[in-house]
Amino acid sequence: MMFAGFTSAYIVKRNQANWQGFDLPDIFAYSTVVILLSSVTMQLAVRNIRNRNMQAYRQLLLVTAILGIAFVAMQWTGFTQLHERGIKLIGAGSNVSGSFLAAIAGMHMLHVVGGVVALAWMLRNALFSKTRNYSAVPAEVAAQYWHFVDLLWIYLFLFLHFVS
Rank of each mutant, 00 (worst) to 15 (best):
G106K: 01
M74T: 12
L62R: 10
L82V: 07
A103S: 04
R50M: 10
A29G: 12
N95A: 11
V96D: 13
T32C: 11
E84V: 04
D23I: 07
T77N: 12
T64R: 05
L37C: 09
V33W: 10
V72S: 07
I66Y: 12
G93S: 04
A102P: 00
F28D: 00
G91M: 14
N95Q: 13
I69W: 01
E84F: 07
N51D: 15
Y30A: 11
V34H: 03
W76V: 11
L24W: 05
F71A: 05
M109Y: 00
A65M: 12
L101C: 05
G68E: 05
M74E: 13
V33N: 13
L62M: 12
V63Y: 09
F22K: 07
N48E: 13
S94W: 01
G93D: 03
R50W: 02
V63W: 08
Y30H: 11
L36F: 06
S97T: 04
D26L: 14
Q59K: 09
V34M: 03
N95S: 12
F79Y: 14
F79Q: 03
I49P: 11
A45M: 10
T64C: 14
S97Y: 02
R58H: 10
V96A: 14
M109I: 08
Q16A: 15
E84R: 14
M54R: 13
G106A: 05
V96G: 04
N53E: 15
G93M: 05
T77R: 08
Y30L: 15
L36A: 12
L61I: 07
G98W: 12
F71S: 05
A45L: 07
M109S: 06
A29P: 07
I87S: 01
P25Q: 07
R85G: 02
R52M: 09
L61H: 03
V40S: 10
Q81Y: 03
N48V: 01
H108F: 01
E84G: 06
T80V: 06
H83Y: 13
A29D: 15
V34P: 00
V46C: 09
S99G: 12
Q81H: 04
L60Q: 11
S31M: 04
L101K: 00
G86P: 09
G86K: 09
V63L: 15
Q43D: 10
M107H: 10
T77D: 14
P25T: 03
I104G: 00
N51S: 15
A56H: 03
A56M: 08
T80M: 06
L60K: 06
I49V: 15
N48D: 15
W76A: 13
I69L: 09
V46G: 06
I90L: 15
T41C: 04
I27G: 02
F22D: 10
S31L: 01
Q43E: 15
V40Q: 10
G86V: 08
I66V: 15
M109W: 00
A103P: 00
Q75D: 03
I69A: 06
L82T: 03
K88H: 14
M54H: 14
H108T: 12
S38G: 01
V46T: 11
A103L: 05
D23H: 12
G68C: 05
W76L: 13
M109F: 03
L67W: 00
P25V: 02
D23Y: 10
Q55R: 14
I49W: 02
V96Q: 15
F71I: 02
S39E: 05
Y30M: 13
S38F: 01
V33P: 02
R50F: 03
M54T: 09
A70C: 13
M74V: 09
